[in-house]
């Protein structure tokens, strides 16, 4: 199956999850593709900035992101499903972020 079909399938899955039952329009498909490409390219470029901390970390991270990009291709439908408007998932991500920020601070202030 070509990449385009995979993406259309994924969009359909997400729409079934939303129970909207609308046909996949060309606008929806092209904007999902654009979002996908934007997401991957900007994350790849952002990951290169890890070179300010350590080159090895940067190489590992770039390879990781690239492999995710190849093997888990339509990321955007998943991202959309994760960033939904449900209160419980919002609180979950919030507390996760709180944990990450506070933990990183101890690591970061020692290493940066």
């Amino acid at each position: 199956m070509s990449l385009y079909d995979t993406i259309i399938d994924k969009i359909k899955q997400v729409q079934e999850y939303d129970k909207e039952g609308e046909p996949v329009t060309s606008i929806a498909a092209s904007s999902t593709l654009a979002a996908e490409i934007t997401l991957l390219s900007s994350i790849l470029v952002a990951v290169i900035m890890l070179r300010y901390f350590s080159n090895a970390l940067m190489i590992i991270a770039v390879l990781l992101v690239a492999s995710i990009a190849i093997f888990a291709m339509p990321l955007m439908p998943r991202f959309k499903r994760e960033q939904n408007d449900s209160l419980n998932s919002m609180i979950f991500y919030m507390i996760l972020a709180l944990g990450i920020i506070t933990t990183l601070f101890y690591w970061g202030s020692l290493n940066v």
Partner: peptide, 14 residues
Amino acid sequence: KASKILGAKQNQET
């Protein structure tokens, strides 16, 4: 119930 009132489905009415 938060999952019922403030869940994803109620609020995804675009």
